[in-house]
């Protein structure tokens, strides 16, 4: 898969590792991941900002039909998470489906998010877990 090319994995590492998004200097809105122009007002005057690492669940899904490389983690809980300044969709880890409710508080946590087989690059990034 293309997403496992080393240059692709490398150039997206900062926003995967540190939850770096962009704030528009024109309209003030924040988006993630960083884009070249504001998705709301089209301004190109953007600055990188670190997003809050804590948010709450707006909605979630418990996914049973997962990739074979996610079978160890099945069912995978996916959350639409409100970070206040913007939202993010991410896997929720360290939780059982019954632990997650709409409104649950979550925090970002650094985990393996994929790998290119047994010999290719490992992709690290942020997932979310119940606040500790």
């Amino acid at each position: 898969m293309l997403s496992k090319s080393p240059p692709v994995v490398w150039r997206s590492r900062i926003y995967r590792y540190r939850l770096i998004g962009c704030k528009c200097k024109n309209c003030g809105r924040v988006h993630y991941p960083p884009a070249s122009a504001c998705p709301y007002c089209s301004s190109r005057d953007l600055e990188e900002v670190e997003l809050p690492r804590v948010g709450k669940v707006l909605s979630y899904s418990i996914v049973y039909a997962v990739d074979s490389d996610a079978r160890e983690r099945s069912p995978v809980i996916l959350g639409l998470i409100d970070l206040g300044v913007t939202r993010i969709i991410a896997e929720i880890t360290d939780a059982n489906p019954e632990d997650i409710k709409i409104g649950s508080q979550l925090e970002a946590v650094f985990r393996r998010i994929g790998e290119d087989g047994e010999t290719g690059v490992i992709i690290y990034g942020l997932k979310f877990r119940p606040v500790i």
Binding site: S59, I89, G114
Partner: peptide, 17 residues
């Protein structure tokens, strides 16, 4: 796609919402 999030998971999130 980077996080291997399929269409189904997003549809599930939307349906619950």
């Amino acid at each position: 796609s980077l996080y291997s999030i399929g269409l189904g998971g997003i549809a599930g999130i939307l349906m619950r919402l």
